[in-house]
Simulated assay, not measured.
Amino acid sequence: MSGRYRQHAFAPGRSLLCRWEYVQGTEASPALVLPDACVDLLWDGERLRIAGPDTRAQYARIAPGRRISGLRFAPGAATRWLGVPLHVLADQRVDLRDLGIPRLATLADRMAEHDADAMAWLADRIQTDTPPRSDAISAVHARLSRARPDTVAQLARDLGINERTLLRRCDEAFGYGPKLLACILRLQRFLRQRHHHANLLEAALDAGYYDAAQLAGDARRLTGLTPTRLIAQVAD
């Protein structure tokens, strides 16, 4: 039996996108975690960890029957709440206590006090405590989410900054630069839209790929899989 995933979305415009829960099935097969330009908090009943921004797919090994609860940050919100630039957390799963920030360690210690309501309690704290979002960072994410995203040069020019400053701000807010962010968002767009097309090429073109070869290149770099195999694993 495979794992079971449930998700509850928060209202748009908040610091958190959703609250989710994953329960591993009776098999101990690894769960595929794809890069999605998001950062999550993970609670397993004992430890509160931050899942940093992934630059490539990872496989989470979860014991049979194990329950993992999560909170997913809106783009750019995690670094404001944590007070840590996200590039230092890229491809990592880190216990909040290990970040050396007293308020985060205190939150982690208090999770067990709230038992079944722990994630609801934490979500309220995050929604209340996260500083306002940057309009510039929101604009970067929105414009790189398009099927035909702006170039780095165009983004920097429109924001009134140089390309090096744009790269630094993206590293802090997303964990990597704008070019990799655009690639990750494009692959996620392809996966969301694939059901609406008769074949992979149509889905790829609609998502913003120039051709099937570009899709295959992105899929292999970001996941290590062919597009066909990737879709099969996501469907599983």
Rank of each mutant, 00 (worst) to 15 (best):
Q92R: 14
R93G: 01
R93M: 11
V94H: 01
D95Y: 00
L96K: 03
R97P: 00
D98C: 10
L99M: 09
G100P: 09
I101C: 03
P102V: 03
P102H: 05
P102Y: 04
L104C: 05
L104H: 12
A105K: 07
T106Y: 05
T106D: 14
T106N: 13
A108K: 04
M111V: 05
A112G: 08
E113I: 07
H114W: 14
H114G: 10
A116F: 12
A116I: 09
D117P: 02
A118I: 13
M119C: 05
A120T: 14
A123D: 01
D124E: 15
D124K: 13
D124H: 11
Q127F: 00
Q127N: 08
T128I: 05
D129Q: 15
D129Y: 01
P131S: 08
R133L: 11
R133V: 02
R133M: 06
S134V: 00
D135W: 05
D135Q: 11
A136M: 05
A136V: 04
I137W: 01
S138M: 04
S138W: 00
S138T: 06
H141A: 10
A142C: 04
L144C: 08
S145M: 06
S145K: 09
S145R: 06
R146I: 03
R148G: 10
P149F: 09
P149A: 02
P149M: 09
D150W: 13
D150R: 13
D150L: 15
V152F: 02
A153C: 01
Q154H: 15
R157D: 14
R157A: 15
D158W: 07
L159P: 05
I161D: 03
N162I: 05
N162K: 11
E163N: 12
R164F: 07
L167I: 13
L167N: 15
R168N: 11
R168M: 06
D171F: 14
D171Y: 15
F174R: 04
G175K: 09
Y176T: 05
G177T: 08
G177N: 00
G177S: 12
P178W: 11
L181I: 04
L181C: 12
L181E: 04
L181Y: 10
A182P: 03
C183F: 02
C183H: 14
I184S: 00
I184G: 00
L185P: 09
R186Q: 14
R186W: 08
R186F: 12
L187S: 02
L187Y: 01
Q188Y: 00
Q188D: 15
Q188N: 13
Q188T: 10
